[in-house]
Structures are given as structure tokens and as C-alpha cells.
């Protein structure tokens, strides 16, 4: 399908925090209580509209199990946005956030927009991590924060779309070089004006960067 931009997202976090369920809720608008273990990575895609422009989100839902850690690291490369997910009913998944964040920062480009997500907000009675703690962590590390529920779909759309908005703003500000695919952004085929001007003005720059 035609799109103006394509953003690559990755979803990361401990096993069982609901990464695949978030993706399923966002792409298919349904919830599956029992989900098969993700092997390596699964993919999802959806079109959204920001500022009147069609944007395709290409989402990489990575495996959370430790044995896949080295494999999932190769998926970080070229991602424009990351959803870092923990489970509000399991304190250990929150405690592991720093490791995940270090991993993400180390293996991706520095401009990647990271959204911190406390999932399973419907399970209020079993909550182990306060919302304020999530907010504090996000503030400390410069992330956007949201609590979601893949089950009730609360905030799921917002989480994905707000991240896209943030990336879009960064493009407008010129932080992202959209011609460099390592940034996780592709320009769609039906973007004749931008495409031609950009490839005209920045193509040479890009090639120059490539050779050194």
C-alpha cells in the first residue's frame, strides 16, 4: 500500500510482559490470553495518519527470553522507535529495565525514540509497580511513559501513535536524516515531491558519508 513514510519499531522487554499481545491488539484489535512464545521475532504492520500523511508502522516484536538476547540485538539496528515494555504486576520486569535500556542505546541509533510502557494496567489488584515509579524512571532516562492494557486496549493506540508523532516531529525538526535507512525511516513511493527534492539535495551527501 502507498505510504508517505515507513517507521521501523521494535518492541522489547522481559518475557511474558505482553509484547506480542500489544502488537496483536494494535494490528488486529483483538486479545489472546494465551500466546505462543515468540521465537526470534514476529512482524506486524499498520497504517496510521499523522498530519494528513499516511505512515506505515513496521513493527518488530522481539522474543523476550534470555536465550534470544544476542539474536534480538541484531533487530535493534535501524529502528526509529522502540517500545520498552514491563509488566506492572511483576517487579522483576521493572528492575530489568536498565539492562534493556543499555542494550537498546548501545545497539541502535542515538535518535531512536523510546517509549516506556507499563503493561497489564487492568490487573490493578495485582499491581507491584506504582505508576509514579514508571513515571520517575521515564523522566530520569528521557523516555515517554504510558501505562497500557493489551487486554482492554486502553492506551495501546496512543502508545504506538504517540511514538510515531514524536518521530514525525523529529523528522520535521530535521533530527532524523530520512535518507539514511539506518535511522529506521523510509520514504514511500508516492512521495514524488519530497522524494525527488530530498534525493536531489541529500543524495550526494549520503553517498559521501557512505564512502568514509
Amino acid at each position: 500500500m502507498a505510504y508517505a513514510y515507513l517507521f521501523k519499531y521494535i518492541i522489547i522487554g522481559d518475557t511474558g510482559v505482553g509484547k506480542s499481545c500489544l502488537l496483536l491488539q494494535f494490528t488486529d484489535k483483538r486479545f489472546q490470553p494465551v500466546h505462543d512464545l515468540t521465537i526470534g521475532v514476529e512482524f506486524g504492520a499498520r497504517m496510521i495518519t499523522i498530519d494528513g500523511k499516511q505512515i506505515k508502522l513496521q513493527i518488530w516484536d522481539t522474543a523476550g527470553q534470555e536465550s534470544f538476547r544476542s539474536i534480538t540485538r541484531s533487530y535493534y539496528r535501524g529502528a526509529a522507535g522502540a517500545l520498552l515494555v514491563y509488566d506492572i504486576t511483576r517487579r522483576d520486569t521493572f528492575n530489568h529495565l536498565t539492562t534493556w535500556l543499555e542494550d537498546a542505546r548501545q545497539h541502535s541509533n542515538s535518535n531512536m525514540v523510546i517509549m516506556l510502557i507499563g503493561n497489564k494496567s487492568d490487573l490493578e489488584s495485582r499491581r507491584e509497580v506504582k505508576k509514579e515509579e514508571g513515571e520517575a524512571f521515564a523522566r530520569e532516562h528521557g523516555l515517554i511513559f504510558m501505562e497500557t492494557s493489551a487486554k482492554t486496549a486502553s492506551n495501546v493506540e496512543e502508545a504506538f501513535i504517540n511514538t510515531a508523532k514524536e518521530i514525525y516531529e523529529k523528522i520535521q525538526e530535521g533530527v532524523f536524516d530520512i535518507n539514511n535507512e539506518a535511522n529506521g525511516i523510509k520514504i514511500g513511493p508516492q512521495h514524488p515531491t519530497t522524494n525527488s527534492t530530498l534525493s536531489g539535495s541529500q543524495g550526494g551527501q549520503h553517498a559521501g558519508g557512505g564512502c568514509c
Binding site: 521465537i39 526470534g40 539474536i71 541484531s74
Partner: peptide, 8 residues
């Protein structure tokens, strides 16, 4: 899997 994941 790690090998095929390099360029995916």
C-alpha cells in the same frame, strides 16, 4: 537464526 537475522 542469528546468522539469518543479520540482514532481515
Amino acid at each position: 537464526m542469528k546468522d539469518v537475522s543479520q540482514e532481515l
